[in-house]
Design a protein around this nucleic acid. Structure first.
Lengths: 309, 309
DNA sequence: CAACGTTACGCTCTTCGTAAAGATG
DNA sequence: CATCTTTACGAAGAGCGTAACGTTG
């Protein structure tokens, strides 16, 4: 069993079972990848991939299990690289943030600007996804940190640090009837087509819980992944939008108005999550400090020491 | 980075930083191991081993962290081997039990006899150690299952199944004054030199807790790892022995008598522990069934499904 | 000086690229 | 027939064993 063989399998799975594209991402030849997979399957005596003729179409039953182990091995080998890079005292490396649209669009840009100035040699990646994808990426070590509000806090392999709290805003065209309303109620929300985040109504999220608890059935007209899409449809007068307060920009969204609805929904807290048992590089903890400016060095140090290592 | 290099480092650490013996356990040449370590250190640009001149004497600071990752990788690669061996449907492989002396000596022999008859091709290892060593071995994947009473249950990476409950016995020479005593009290115990398990008084174990709670200071004359040693010293009339009830054998220990002290100490439960996130082979779950005969197939299946996988 | 580690060297087996052939949908 | 995978083959390189040399305590 060779690491290279495991890497091949890993990349092939990540590339939807396409050996050719996997080879490209690995900067090697396609027959090489093919061969290494065959060699490993031969060595362990078990087919890892399901095949339709010669094409790979999925993992076999043992393949699924083997792949889980391979993922862990790849994650740990990345960890070794991080450790050594850190001790070489060079501020180089790869830093991957997994986050939701709201963060990526409205909160991260400033921080990222500061970060890349301080660490110009660090290769920064931002992976955008929904909260459960963010969680996934942290768990698999595909992202060094994840920033999200939902989902991320409920996994005990993820160590979470609260960043800031925010409330929701209701956005609507300026001429919308509700625009004059002084105090918005849940009934108001339910009486117009509602446009909001898609994951807000999958799973037990805050918004869906509030409606459920009050026995009011909202009229979800459209669910979108990000606030920009939501605002676009609100602009088309297709409904009212329920978004995070920071996703409203008075200048850019000057055709809309936002009304605070913090009295309807409990406050939400956004967290940074990092995987337990994983080495944290200096630039990673530095990034956390940048993202949570009110946090002192000492606080962060104390918090990070609470992690299982 | 190659798996073989990681294996070399792993074995060198396990062999107390002796490259020569590590090479022997790996069935390869000593210069080969030496070379591979150098190559990896060169590749990652960090010294993993502390050296006195040419001799390896320990891990460096980054080496410690790297070694943790390496251990995980080795564990996962063993896991891959287990998975494939299982799916090849051959009842071959390695099965390692970590356990305490009491289990190994008084409970395991019968079960092991049954086991090796059913699985003659399985290479069975029994690692004997104290409860915290058993826990360690489960965590590191050096043992497939661990059987112990203390320590094992308190780690959330270990999945525990209760096996049986037992009480303690006080053993003493037949002519000992306490031999006539009808109802032994804690004060009795404290008034004679006591010989018991060494780990019974390290950490917050049941026995030490009982004495502490009653404010009675026992006179611990000698602590031993196993009941046989304890009984030997009791035979020499150096004190009274506090051991697990199953460690007393009427026939073999005919010079001693055992008195039940279940009214003094709460009952103890022995557990089988297996690591979470680890593939469980058929012969492993079969072993568990043999060790806990009252457990039905269905119960075991339900229990094992509760594991995080 | 005995035990241990590194260097040197040559043989063998692997790996990896290119080119070409075979499958798949 | 365009895309994808396997086979074939040769060059470059990695791995490993033996032997010799250097270090350490």
């Amino acid at each position: 069993m060779k690491l290279q063989q495991l890497r091949c399998i890993y990349e092939v799975v990540l590339n939807s079972f396409n050996i050719s594209t996997a080879a490209k991402t690995m900067h090697t030849s396609q027959p090489g990848v093919s061969k290494q997979i065959q060699l490993l399957e031969e060595e362990i005596g078990v087919q890892i991939f399901q095949r339709h003729g010669k094409r790979l179409v999925g993992l076999t039953d043992p393949g699924e299990k083997v792949f889980d182990s391979i993922s862990e091995i790849i994650r740990e080998s990345r960890n070794i690289k991080n450790i050594s890079a850190e001790y070489k005292n060079n501020n180089e490396g790869v830093f991957t943030i997994a986050t939701t649209h709201t963060q990526a669009r409205y909160k991260l840009p400033k921080v990222v600007e500061t970060f890349i100035k301080k660490y110009p040699k660090v290769n920064l990646n931002i992976h955008q996804g929904n909260p459960s994808q963010v969680t996934e990426q942290i768990l698999k070590g595909e992202a060094d940190v994840g920033i999200a509000t939902e989902a991320i806090g409920s996994n005990d392999k993820i160590f979470c640090i609260p960043c800031y709290s925010w409330n929701r805003s209701l956005v609507m065209p300026k001429e919308h009837p509700l625009a004059q309303e002084e105090r918005i109620t849940l009934e108001h929300l339910a009486s117009y087509p509602l446009i909001t985040y898609d994951y807000a109504f999958t799973g037990s999220t805050i918004v869906s819980k509030v409606f459920k608890d009050s026995n009011i059935e909202p009229n979800i007209m459209l669910t979108a992944i990000d606030a920009d899409v939501i605002k676009t449809y609100v602009n088309l007068n297709l409904g009212i939008g329920l978004i995070a307060e920071m996703a409203f920009d008075k200048e850019k969204d000057r055709n809309l108005i936002a009304k605070d609805v913090s009295h309807l929904f409990p406050v939400s807290t956004t967290y940074i999550g990092i995987r337990q048992d994983t080495f944290v590089r200096t630039f990673t903890s530095d990034f956390i400090k940048m993202f949570i400016p009110q946090m002192t060095d000492r606080e962060l140090k104390i918090i990070l020491e609470k992690r299982q290592v």
